[in-house]
Amino acid sequence: MRSIRLIFRVVLTMLVIAGCAAAAANAQTVYNNGTGSNNGYYYSLYSSGGSATMTFPSASQYHGNYAISWSGVNDVVGGKGWSTGSAQSIGYNVGSASGYNCISIYGWTTNPLVEYYIVEFGSNQNGSYKGSVSSDGHTYSTYEHQQVNQPSIQGTATFEQYLDNWGGSSTGSNHTVTTSNHFNHWKSLGMNMGSFNYQILAAEAWGGRSGSVNATVW
């Protein structure tokens, strides 16, 4: 009987510890600048001017969940995703969003060095228009933007930005970005990708705006 009680106590203690750890992970708050991992996903928040806060309100249930609010920022970029991306199908649900410039699948590859955006909300158009691609039920406009001697993850570099711009997504429902459709389309245009670096669902805002986003990626 004593041993059963002991086992019960141990199990109860473990459950309490686990519960506290989960609560701590989800109660995490990032002010203005911060990065790390949360519930198995990488997150990053950067802001300058004004203020920005990142939390993970539903991450215990939806591990890729995050929320960012910002006020009067010169620039804010934040999101959650993977430290090493891939040509994967990325699911997301943006529960609410306001005051942003764009919400995108954003990442880098190396050899060749490429910075890419697949724009789901808002707009990000730079460089030369290269055509269009249909994926996941809608059409994206493709842009290629050459960056000469500009900062990059490798240091000063001459590299490409690839942008597939749609921006017509909606809040409150699940969406998919079949990234392989975009990457294959870019390849068909001679816009080659390299080895994957990080890949995130990122929200960006600039120009003194205030707003917020609550999103989940998987």
Binding site: T110, V148, N149, I153, Q154, G155, T156, A157, T158
Partner: peptide, 25 residues
């Protein structure tokens, strides 16, 4: 100073046009 750690590794090979320059070059 601007690079990710992987690009500071002994075996990593980088390249830039010969007339290229930057505050980390």
């Amino acid at each position: 100073w601007m690079s990710g750690a992987a690009f500071t590794a002994v075996a990593f090979r980088g390249n830039l046009a010969a007339n290229g320059a930057g505050p980390d070059q």
